[in-house]
Nucleic acid binder design. Structure first.
Lengths: 160, 160
DNA sequence: GAAACACTGGTCATGTTGTCCACCGTACTC
DNA sequence: GAGTACGGTGGACAACATGACCAGTGTTTC
């Protein structure tokens, strides 16, 4: 087995096609990629089985929901309590969109949104209102220089 | 200004349904929500028009593509050059999944992935190999405490 | 009271889906 | 070199979903 190449060029082109026009249907994909419909179906099944494609959930824009402020919050936590307990606490706050433990002292980085700056204070209070959280320092996102994307990565991996 | 309450309970339940079972089809949604098909279609159109639903792109897992390391990189940039030029530089690197300018000195926070720690060095070298970037300090994500999600937010906003 | 709006429940032609099938190369194994 | 597994092809079929309509009804707003 050579280098485990997770996807090939056809996979990459299929993913790009679905990303560009998601409501397109399998048959139309097959037409545009000049392959048989069964091939597209088989590829999709395998990509999903391998976990490359996690799903086709609707992409929600928090800003359009009225949450116009995004912030990255770095938490200093009480090591004794364990990260997982803090993780569960964070999971209970809807405004916490994601959270990772990171190197540099066993702390946590979380992405949170809020309706405005005053609302961000409320969310931060919720976050630190838990005995396992010692301190939270946050930076507010001003502008999106690069919007979240994975297509370039897919094409780099697939040689599209 | 229109945007009083961005979504209602039906919108929220529709989004949750689509998030849970994306390949479900509009008709099936209508059946499960006990509303007419036209209603679901109209709601979806409006959610898309208002930008709440950005699309239905496939959710790609970078780890399954072989990019097993995630890092958050804070960039210190030369203010003179402007953020946008650095943003374009970052956009040219596939491993940069997103980037935001943030408060705290006009710097940039970027999320990058790499195949492994050695590969991360290569990516970081690419990032700092640009005259507008003065310094990069990175923290490596060890574990996902809260995986990226928007459903709780949707339900908080929609009162589902 | 009228207008605007959202939802219902129905129709229609059209296209897509899931699931079969036989067939054909290529690559790998013994 | 023969046998076999695998991935792709191209075709078939019934069942279903889609987009586009429509008239009718209730609710809210001016």
């Amino acid at each position: 087995m050579t280098s485990v190449s997770p996807i090939d060029s056809l996979d990459a082109r299929l993913i790009r096609l679905l990303a560009d026009e998601p409501r397109i249907g399998i048959l139309e994909c097959a037409r545009r990629l000049h392959v048989a419909r069964g091939t597209v179906q088989a590829r999709l099944d395998k990509l999903a089985a391998r976990g490359v494609i996690q799903g086709f959930g609707p992409d929600i824009d928090a800003a359009a929901l009225g949450y116009r402020v995004t912030a990255f919050v770095t938490l200093e936590i009480r090591q004794a309590g364990g990260h997982d307990r803090v993780g569960r606490h964070l999971a209970g706050i809807p405004e916490v969109l994601e959270a990772h433990t990171v190197t540099g002292g066993g702390d946590i980085v979380a992405r949170v949104v809020a309706r405005d700056n005053a609302d961000l204070q409320r969310v931060l209070d919720q976050i630190v209102g838990y005995e396992g959280v010692l301190r939270a320092s946050s930076v507010i996102a001003l502008a999106e220089q690069v919007r979240y994307r994975t297509l370039p990565l897919v094409e780099a991996a697939g040689g599209a």
